[in-house]
Design a protein around this nucleic acid. Structure first.
Lengths: 228, 228
DNA sequence: GATCAATGGTACACCATTGGTTCACGCAAC
DNA sequence: GTTGCGTGAACCAATGGTGTACCATTGATC
């Protein structure tokens, strides 16, 4: 395995070869000069050249075969993104417990730090949640609203956390729970609570924002858990 | 975080570099001049410059590698979209902020829920941390201690969270920060704080446990961020 | 099939560069 | 004085690049 970071000289070699591939000087399937030759040609030591070649091979631009040579490879195809499965096995009860710890505090932070752009994104999500039809759409904008609040914290750990939460909320188990509990009446309650939260944020009132979020999540938890 | 802990000259350097990053004079990934050069350029001593750089590193604006150089790090906002659901790119400042939200509450929960087995695991980790030699060993048992507290919460989301934290703590960047700050004297402070936490847990006193954890993490944060 | 040159793979010692650490000293504020 | 910040200098430690030697595999030639 190569290190993620390579020095400036090696980076220069990477750029040069990538440029040649892009410019057509090196075409698909073509064999590169031997390392010992290419190294002197590019004015670097063979070790340095090899670091660059390893990087390019790892990224799929080159193929190397011992005793044969180094060859330009066809254009890179996108690789499958692996979804991180952290928090995957969490039960709704456990998750709500953690949400009640983090999110009120995050709301307070957001109230202090949000920019006008953040407010705009938050309000967009809120307004869309109000007019959403069906559980799926409402869930989406609800999740977006919470995500936008977390983005306003400017803390990447919290943002990552919220994205993990949202991943779980799309899981069938969670979805079924919510579907069972979300009566039209309860949804109006959620709408009001969201509205109060947005107002508190707009007013840059951290304590009020914390309180609103706490109340809201308590309601969510009680309704999720209360329904058998 | 405390801006009081560095002087006006160092603060001026911090502002100057932040301005250059904001203005685009320094772009993401770019290498800064060597400290010895940059110091003369900015008209301050290398020590003063290094205080400023340490601050900027702790806040996530820069990364430094011995023998390589100092590099501008991607803006926090940019990092958000690129690597979702991974705490990897969190800056120490961001991470400590989150720890201070979660871990005191987790300690309180642990105080209520821990079994005698949990207590045994916690105390084993604590005792091993007391006799640990070297930073690596101490770090290990310190991390274990925190993990065992989270185990005692019986909440798998929290346990996962703690393991994510521990993963970061093994990253070179974080390790270097801790290494720089952990003087023998400070370690004795940590030992005492850990001891107080363990006692509070043993006494099943949630409020005391919360307080101990909060105090401890505040100390950790201040020393990570404040020390040159 | 055996041989051998060509080629990529690996390992090591050495050096220059660069960040990390420590110490002694000066200076200004309290 | 005492404290804390800044300065300067020396030294330590890690990194990347270079140079060299040798190993492992391939494929053409005998």
């Amino acid at each position: 395995m190569n290190k993620d970071i390579i020095g400036s000289a090696a980076q220069g070699v990477v750029d040069e070869i990538l440029h040649r591939i892009k410019a057509g000087t090196l075409t698909s399937g073509q064999q590169l000069p031997p390392e010992r030759v290419l190294a002197t040609e590019l004015g670097v030591a063979r070790n340095t050249l090899r670091k660059a070649l390893s990087r390019l091979e790892a990224e799929g631009h080159l193929t190397r075969r011992i005793g044969a040579g180094t060859f330009v490879r066809a254009a890179v195809n996108d690789r499958m993104g692996s979804l991180p499965s952290r928090f995957r096995s969490a039960s709704p009860a456990e998750l709500m417990e953690v949400r009640l710890i983090i999110e009120p505090q995050a709301a307070a932070m957001a109230a202090s730090r949000a920019t006008s752009e953040d407010f705009k994104a938050i309000e967009t999500a809120y307004n869309n949640s109000l007019t959403a039809e069906g559980l799926g759409e409402f869930e989406h904008w609800d999740a977006q609203l919470h995500l936008m609040v977390f983005r306003a914290t400017r803390n990447s750990v919290l943002i990552d956390y919220c994205q993990a939460i949202n991943t779980i909320r799309n899981e069938p188990e969670w979805y079924a729970l919510k579907k069972r509990s979300l009566t039209p009446e309860l949804r109006r309650v959620y709408d009001r609570q969201h509205g109060a939260l947005v107002s508190a944020l707009r007013a840059r009132d951290p304590e009020q924002a914390r309180l609103c979020m706490s109340k809201h999540l308590t309601t969510v938890r009680d309704n999720l858990m209360g329904v058998i």
